[in-house]
C-alpha cells in the first residue's frame, strides 16, 4: 500500500517546510483559520445569548408538559424542536438547559482559573518551597481521574435525594455544588499549566531586569509575568470549558448533575437512555449543541495556542 503509486516518502513535506519558512501570522491567515474562528465565536455568542435571554424569550415553560402533544418530532407545529414523552417543549428545555450547562461550565472554569491560576503563578514565580508544596498539591489531585473526582465531590457535597428535587432552591444549590466540585477538579489542571508557563517567563531577561531594578516581586509577578502567562491560561481555559460541557453530561449519566425536572443538556440526553426511539429529538438536539459548542471551543483553544505559541509540552 505504502509503496504503490508515485508518492514517495519525503524528508521535508510541504506542510513542514511551509511551517519553517512562514512566520506564524501567515500560517494563521493562509489556512483560512480566521473564518472558522469567527464562525466558532459567532456560535458560542449565540448560545450564550439565548442562555442569558431565556427568561424573556417567547418560549413555552420548560417544565410544563403538553399532554396533547407528547413525543412530537422535529419541526412540529407548536414544538419547533419536538417534545418529550410528557410533551415538554424541547426548544424551551434546551434553552433553559443551556443556562444550566453553561453556568456550570463557565462558572467552574472561572473558579479553577482564578484559584489554579493564582496558585500556579505564585508557584512558578516564587519557586523553592512554595513551588514544591503547591506542586505536590496539584499532583495529588491529579492522581484521581477527573471524572471520578468530580463525581465523588458532587455525590458527597450534595447527596442525591431519593425523591428528586424540583424547587428552584434545589436547582441553585446543585448548580453551586457542581460548579464547586468541578472547579476544584480544574484547579490542579489550570494550576499546572500556569505554573509551567510562569516558570519559563520568570526566567526571561526582562523579568530579571525588572527585578534587578528593584521592583517589588508582587509588582513583577503581576505586571511582567502574568500578562505573558495569560495566553496559556486562556487556551487551556477554553479547552476547560469544553471539557466541563462534556463532563456535565457524564455527571448526568451518573445522576448527579441537575435533577429532573429541571433541564440541562446532559440530563436531557440521559433522561432518554431507556427509551431512545420514542422521542429522539430530546437527546439528539442537546447532543448536537454540546458537539458544536465543544467543537468551537476546541478550535478556538487551538487557535489561541497557535497564535501565542503556547507549547504543547507545557501542557
Amino acid at each position: 500500500m505504502l509503496e504503490s503509486a508515485d508518492t514517495e516518502l519525503t524528508a521535508g513535506s510541504v506542510s513542514a517546510a511551509a511551517a519553517v519558512e512562514e512566520p506564524p501570522d501567515e500560517v494563521f491567515e493562509k489556512r483560512g483559520m480566521g473564518v472558522l474562528a469567527w464562525i466558532g465565536i459567532g456560535w458560542l455568542s449565540l448560545v450564550v445569548l439565548i442562555a442569558i435571554l431565556a427568561p424573556v424569550l417567547p418560549l413555552k415553560a420548560p417544565m410544563v408538559g403538553d399532554y396533547l402533544h407528547p413525543k412530537a418530532g422535529l419541526f412540529s407545529p407548536g414544538h419547533l424542536l419536538g417534545s418529550d414523552d410528557s410533551g415538554r417543549d424541547v426548544l424551551s428545555r434546551v434553552v433553559w438547559g443551556a443556562r444550566a450547562s453553561l453556568l456550570i461550565a463557565v462558572g467552574s472554569i472561572a473558579f479553577g482559573t482564578l484559584i489554579g491560576g493564582f496558585l500556579g503563578l505564585v508557584a512558578g514565580f516564587k519557586g523553592g518551597l512554595t513551588d514544591t508544596v503547591l506542586g505536590a498539591f496539584f499532583n495529588i489531585f491529579l492522581a484521581f481521574p477527573q471524572l471520578v473526582l468530580a463525581l465523588t465531590l458532587v455525590a458527597v457535597l450534595a447527596p442525591v435525594k431519593p425523591s428528586g428535587g424540583a424547587s428552584s432552591g434545589e436547582w441553585g444549590h446543585r448548580i453551586l455544588v457542581v460548579i464547586l466540585a468541578v472547579g476544584i477538579v480544574s484547579v490542579p489542571l489550570l494550576g499546572r499549566i500556569t505554573r509551567a508557563s510562569a516558570i519559563s517567563w520568570s526566567q526571561r531577561e526582562f523579568v530579571m531586569a525588572a527585578r534587578a531594578q528593584g521592583a517589588t516581586s508582587r509588582r513583577v509577578m503581576l505586571r511582567e509575568v502574568l500578562p505573558n502567562v495569560v495566553p496559556a491560561m486562556a487556551s487551556i481555559a477554553l479547552l476547560g470549558v469544553a471539557i466541563v460541557l462534556v463532563l456535565e453530561g457524564a455527571l448526568a449519566v451518573f445522576g448527579v448533575s441537575i435533577q429532573e425536572p429541571n433541564p440541562s443538556w446532559g440530563n436531557m440526553i440521559y433522561s432518554q437512555l431507556s427509551n431512545l426511539n420514542s422521542a429522539p429529538a430530546v437527546w439528539i438536539v442537546p447532543s448536537v449543541l454540546i458537539f458544536l459548542s465543544v467543537l468551537a471551543l476546541n478550535y478556538l483553544g487551538d487557535v489561541v495556542r497557535a497564535r501565542f505559541d503556547v507549547r504543547e509540552s507545557a501542557l
Binding site: T10, G12, S13, A17
Partner: peptide, 9 residues
C-alpha cells in the same frame, strides 16, 4: 538532486 533525494516541494 543528483541522488534524487529531494523533498516533495
Amino acid at each position: 538532486s543528483i541522488m534524487g533525494l529531494l523533498p516533495r516541494n
